[in-house]
Amino acid sequence: MSGPLHSLSEAGVSVWLDDLSRSRLDSGSLAAMLSSHSIAGVTTNPTIFAQAISQDPAYEPRLAEAVATAGAEADPEELIDLLTVADVQDACDALRGVYERTEGIDGRVSLEVSPVLAHDGEGTIEAAKRLAAAVGRENVMIKIPATEAGLYAIPRVLEAGISVNVTLVFSLDQYRKVVEAYLTGLERAREHGADLSSIASVASVFVSRVDAEIDRRLDALGTEEAAALRGGAGLANCRLTHRVQSQVFDSERFRVLAAAGARIQRLLWASTGVKDPAYPDTMYVSGLVTPGTVNTMPEKTMEAFADHGEVPADTMPGAYAAADAHFDALAGLGIDYAEVMDRLQTEGLEKFSASWTELVDVVASRRADAV
């Protein structure tokens, strides 16, 4: 097979689909994309499931079954778990061949803990263990946000042998804390005699939202100097994150873990759908080609890249200095990097929480109809 998406895979970039629904599973769409688009994984989030369950008629009989199973008085969140766990189970089964062929590197499907738990460390640990057990598939990844509570929970979830997708990572400081949580979790797992080779993790660094927020601030300045910096922060931030990764995993601490079978925590580029129509619709894919990374795309971005995407040589060598210079220039205009990134994480949590509330309301209403 040939084409841009296959070329991405050949360049060492794993292509994951940022979407899942019952109709996609039942129709065979996901299975078809495994070969047509070299899909090697699937990511989900509360917004994806809120849209799917509220709009996809394939969930109507599933919800009726869930109500029959859990009871007419079942909490809507319990019903949501039944629906989403079933979807993730089927997606894991569809990707089982990829998981085995890549020896567990790919073939992963992510399921996120409720955003209501974003500031509840113990609740996150409990939910992660419950969801992993409910899915019951080796290739599931439990998604946990990089909040203070999430960073507390991540080592304990990894310690239990559960693979983790750390989401809503924006700043370099957040990313360093994510790596620390990952290494601590592996060390604890090793102390318990766990097979480290069975534990995988990705750090999901959001891209387009960074440009959306910084571009808004640049536009407010209204100068030529500000305009010249538009559309560069998202890629620059990812490139600096890649530099940090190359440093922290080139350490004696990780080499000891690697000798026991541990894998590097891969960088996953998330939020890769371009929000500004003035930019190329594939810029967050072509601009982040480097081996050993994951690019998770919504279907629209994936189709665009399959149609006209370009796969350059490794985009990281020599890019770090320019990325540093970009943020220096932003700082010179009064744009505070740390404040922007903290704001973005807070807004990301708020958006997922709003989606979750919408989903709970929809399921509660349809539960009443089913009863």
Rank of each mutant, 00 (worst) to 15 (best):
A233K: 02
A319D: 06
H37I: 12
S2D: 02
S36L: 14
S54M: 12
A86W: 03
Y337L: 06
A226Y: 05
A368G: 00
I53N: 06
A236G: 15
A68R: 11
V285L: 15
R367K: 15
Y279E: 13
D26R: 14
R188S: 10
G12C: 06
D93H: 03
G12W: 06
D56M: 10
D195F: 08
V256H: 04
V340Q: 03
V311S: 11
R230G: 01
V98Y: 03
E299G: 09
E347Q: 11
G107V: 05
F254E: 01
N237C: 05
R62L: 00
L5C: 14
A134G: 13
A354H: 01
F249H: 04
A32W: 04
V371K: 07
L333P: 01
D342Y: 12
L111C: 07
A236F: 05
I162F: 05
S271I: 12
D276L: 11
D314S: 09
V157F: 15
D18C: 13
T272W: 05
M141G: 14
V205L: 10
P145C: 13
S198R: 07
A194S: 09
E100L: 02
G136C: 07
V166G: 08
G104W: 06
R253K: 07
F254T: 12
I144T: 02
I142Q: 04
P4R: 10
F254A: 06
A278I: 11
S251I: 04
S7P: 10
G273M: 13
S197C: 00
A32F: 02
R263A: 08
G318T: 08
D219A: 13
S27Y: 14
L8Q: 06
T357K: 03
D56W: 14
P4A: 12
I80M: 08
G309R: 03
V362G: 02
Q89Y: 00
D369V: 12
L34H: 10
S38C: 14
E159Q: 13
E148G: 11
G287F: 13
Y182Q: 06
V13T: 05
R62N: 11
V42N: 06
R156S: 14
G334I: 05
R255M: 05
P61M: 11
A220R: 02
S35L: 12
S27Q: 06
G287N: 09
Y320D: 05
A94V: 08
T44M: 04
A258Y: 02
S163L: 12
A321K: 09
D328C: 00
L83G: 09
A212Q: 00
R101Q: 03
D324W: 07
E224R: 11
C238S: 00
L17D: 10
M316G: 09
R108N: 07
H37L: 00
M33A: 15
S9T: 13
G231E: 02
V67C: 09
Q55A: 15
A52T: 05
G150I: 00
F305S: 08
M33G: 15
A233H: 14
L257A: 00
L25Q: 08
T290K: 08
L30W: 15
E358D: 05
P115V: 01
T84M: 15
R367L: 09
I154F: 14
V13F: 02
E303I: 11
T346D: 08
A278M: 04
Y320C: 07
E224G: 08
V157I: 09
M283E: 14
D120S: 07
S114F: 02
D324S: 05
D215T: 10
A323H: 00
A50L: 13
H308C: 08
P4V: 12
V360E: 08
P4T: 02
V13E: 00
S198H: 03
